[in-house]
Design a protein around this nucleic acid. Structure first.
Lengths: 193, 193
DNA sequence: CGTCTATTTGAATGTACTCAAAAGCGGTGG
DNA sequence: CCACCGCTTTTGAGTACATTCAAATAGACG
């Protein structure tokens, strides 16, 4: 739980009791590699904080192509926000890439927590705005960068994630075929030829 | 101010006094077509609610290509969140596409408002999460859709915005050249030939 | 009516994709 | 310890989607 407490204290000022109240609202869970914590169509009734391990959050097109929205490693959150907030069917899949430990909270528990500790509202406002900034960068990259620029941008921005995922996953994240990613990597190593 | 009050009441429950407190924290301003309210490099010291008119929020690449992140019409917000929150140089430009009226608030005023009326924190948490969902859709569209799918998706999602912008702006939003957008439109109207 | 801007068309080019096959790599069992 | 299996990565060839640059056309405004 330490990592979660540090995460909170870094972002909002809380008393020890409030910190206790917050962390006690979350339930520790383990997830095995390759297992899903959410599938499109289900109602997402949880929000999870990643304590350990990694996940991919992705969208599946009607013809079965997988597009990874983001990877979640330690200190990231996993959920389908739209589904969690509005209790509508999820659009996203969330799957563990490594054995993982997460802290989960339900919609009701979270509302109760907001009520009992209003600072939490602030924590999530701040967190959400940060994600928003990251998403904006991603949109700019997706629309304006070449495939190679998106690749280099990813490894620069997420050096911690990069070594933990396969080429196939990375290709899906930056929006290229795995074959083309392979060609790009060669070309970056050997600019001649 | 009515449109702003309605906007708030639709999203959080507030007393009349609180509503008054919130709206009185904002200052009405007018902006002429083509004028900038923010340029990259500046510190964004405001957040604005669009009462009337339209804006484009865009990013300029080192070689001068313009990539539109989003259009803001009535009831949308304009700001460079990262710059506004962390007082760092803005990455974005915000320019009026039509004569506009906005309600603006400064960083200090907003912090004061959060302090005096904690529900506002909730309002922004909700709003920010909604933007987050929209951004996620945009990422999926940018990475997984063809240019034509992105075009059709835009006019379906934003039928109110579509008639108010030029082809050049739309092309920049969906990430294609204006020539190609023109060709797509023809092909959609006349699938033969 | 002329000027300025926005849109469309044409031709050549490039970036990234698809499909198919080969090569590499890690684990497991004999 | 090596052989085999499954999975990931690389290579090759042909193709498609979208771009660039240049020029023509259409629209809007004074």
């Amino acid at each position: 739980m330490e990592i979660f407490k540090e995460y909170i204290k870094k972002r909002i000022s809380v008393t020890d009791e409030q910190l206790e109240l917050i962390t006690s609202s979350y339930t520790p869970t383990t997830v095995k590699r390759k297992n899903f914590v959410l599938r499109a169509g289900e109602i997402c009734n949880f929000e999870g904080f990643v304590k350990k391990g990694s996940f991919k959050i992705f969208y599946l097109t009607p013809n079965g192509e997988e597009h990874i929205l983001y990877f979640a490693i330690e200190e990231w959150w996993i959920s389908d926000i739209a589904s969690f907030n509005d209790q509508e069917p999820a659009q996203l899949y969330i799957q563990a890439l490594e054995d993982a430990e997460i802290l989960v909270i339900s919609r009701e528990q979270k509302e109760r927590l907001f009520h009992n500790c209003p600072q939490v509202e602030r924590l999530f406002r701040i967190m959400s705005q940060r994600s928003q900034v990251a998403s904006q960068h991603r949109i700019i990259a997706a629309l304006g960068f070449t495939a190679q620029e998106r690749y280099l941008d990813f490894i620069k921005r997420y050096p911690k994630i990069y070594p933990r995922i396969s080429n196939l996953q990375l290709a899906s994240y930056i929006g290229v075929s795995q074959e083309f990613l392979s060609r790009m990597k060669r070309q970056i190593l050997k600019p001649n030829k």
